Simulated assay, not measured.
Amino acid sequence: MGGSYEESPPTLADELARDSRWAKGNLQHLWVMLREPGLRFAHRMAFLNGIMAYVASPLWLGFLILTTIAAANMTLAPIEYFPDGHQGLFPLWPEWRPEWALGLALSTLALLFFPKFLAILDAVIHRFTKEFGGLFRLFCSVMLEIMISVLLAPLRMWAHSRYVVSALLNVSLQWAGQNRTEETGWKEAFVFQLPGMLLGGGWSAFAWSLDTMFFLWSLPVALPLILAAPTAVYLSRNSLGQALKKRRLLLIPEECKTMPLLEDVVWYRSRELSSPTLTPLEQAVLRLDHNRLHQALAWDHRHGSRTAELEACVALCLEQGPEALSRLQMSQIVRDRQSLRVLHEGAWRAPPDSFWGRAIGRLSAHVSGA
């Protein structure tokens, strides 16, 4: 069960690191959506929804850039009342369509926030508000979530825009273990968020120099960028989450009743045959039930030149133990079905004073002690 339970990353930096991989994966679905024959329209729309989850960010950023350019032109460039080619005695007045701006603002607000209030209505109709702390606390939680979303949206927009560009340029990504417990420190937050903070501060100062109303219009985006570091630090604090949980805010049903999966994990780890003295890798090699499970999940990778390479890695692992191999080599042999079988058989034939012999001794001592 180790590592099988997927939780949300506890910090903004970790969430954005995960999004960098997800952005590239979702953009790769574009070719499937457009070119794969036989897909239903609903399935293509599901792919498009995943793609737009990241492409929407550079579109938003482009909208802000074009709006800033337009505001700068209106403020800095002289208005041409009689441009070239304009004939007549009357000037060509600049056009301003406030109904378009109002319609864009209202439709955006409806798209972002109306589904949240529909969710509250759904909870009331189906009578499960109690699982979220009650109707009043559910409403307060939704309002709090909206405030946090307003703070995080520009940060995600800036990060996702970079990820989309990197994906289009085919920049390679590293896949490493994800942080599940650590909080964000102030130094880390400032280093990670500094480019966005400088961007928000510079844009806000430029907007102020252009026009007061444009400056106020820019604040919902610029201010969260300027406050990115404090936002990242405080939203990673376990104490803040525990305080909200104590007040039954942002509560979800799984916090009131334990999930069956987690109950299974507790039972599994408390079984008599579990071996806390062995690492998961050692258990996967030595214990027959673990080894068979991993073999069932593995594939046959022995073909061509890889056969000799895998055989050499298995022999070295049996002779000197896993520490003699790199992480890449160890990953290759534990994904190969035949290598897992050979490791299991070879480890149980190992001399008592070898790495695997000592591991068998620890396993035997635990079983006999139990």
Rank of each mutant, 00 (worst) to 15 (best):
residue 3 G to L: 07
residue 9 P to I: 01
residue 12 L to D: 03
residue 14 D to I: 00
residue 14 D to P: 01
residue 22 W to Q: 12
residue 24 K to T: 04
residue 28 Q to H: 15
residue 28 Q to W: 15
residue 31 W to R: 14
residue 33 M to W: 07
residue 34 L to R: 14
residue 37 P to L: 05
residue 39 L to M: 11
residue 40 R to V: 02
residue 42 A to N: 14
residue 45 M to K: 10
residue 51 I to L: 11
residue 56 A to Q: 00
residue 68 T to E: 05
residue 72 A to K: 02
residue 72 A to Y: 05
residue 77 A to H: 15
residue 88 G to T: 05
residue 91 P to Y: 09
residue 101 A to E: 11
residue 102 L to P: 02
residue 105 A to S: 10
residue 110 A to W: 08
residue 111 L to R: 09
residue 113 F to A: 07
residue 114 F to L: 14
residue 118 L to Q: 10
residue 120 I to A: 12
residue 120 I to M: 14
residue 122 D to Y: 13
residue 129 T to C: 09
residue 131 E to D: 08
residue 131 E to A: 06
residue 138 L to W: 02
residue 142 V to C: 03
residue 143 M to L: 14
residue 145 E to W: 08
residue 147 M to Q: 07
residue 151 L to R: 01
residue 151 L to N: 01
residue 160 H to M: 05
residue 162 R to Y: 05
residue 162 R to L: 12
residue 164 V to F: 03
residue 167 A to P: 01
residue 171 V to M: 06
residue 175 W to Y: 08
residue 181 T to L: 09
residue 186 W to F: 11
residue 193 Q to D: 09
residue 194 L to K: 06
residue 195 P to Y: 02
residue 197 M to W: 06
residue 198 L to H: 05
residue 199 L to H: 05
residue 200 G to W: 02
residue 200 G to Y: 03
residue 204 S to Y: 10
residue 204 S to T: 07
residue 207 A to N: 02
residue 209 S to M: 07
residue 212 T to L: 12
residue 216 L to M: 13
residue 220 P to W: 06
residue 221 V to Q: 03
residue 222 A to Q: 07
residue 229 A to F: 04
residue 230 P to N: 07
residue 232 A to M: 05
residue 237 R to V: 00
residue 244 L to C: 04
residue 245 K to E: 05
residue 246 K to D: 02
residue 247 R to E: 04
residue 248 R to L: 09
residue 252 I to A: 11
residue 254 E to F: 08
residue 256 C to D: 12
residue 257 K to P: 00
residue 262 L to Q: 08
residue 266 V to W: 04
residue 274 S to R: 07
residue 275 S to Q: 14
residue 286 L to Y: 04
residue 295 Q to F: 03
residue 302 R to Q: 15
residue 305 S to V: 10
residue 307 T to C: 13
residue 317 C to P: 01
residue 319 E to Y: 05
residue 322 P to N: 10
residue 323 E to I: 02
residue 323 E to F: 10
residue 324 A to D: 07
residue 326 S to K: 12
residue 328 L to S: 15
residue 329 Q to S: 12
residue 333 I to G: 00
residue 333 I to K: 01
residue 337 R to E: 07
residue 340 L to P: 00
residue 343 L to I: 08
residue 344 H to D: 10
residue 351 P to K: 09
residue 354 S to Y: 00
residue 359 A to Q: 12
residue 361 G to H: 12
residue 363 L to C: 09
residue 366 H to W: 15
residue 368 S to V: 06
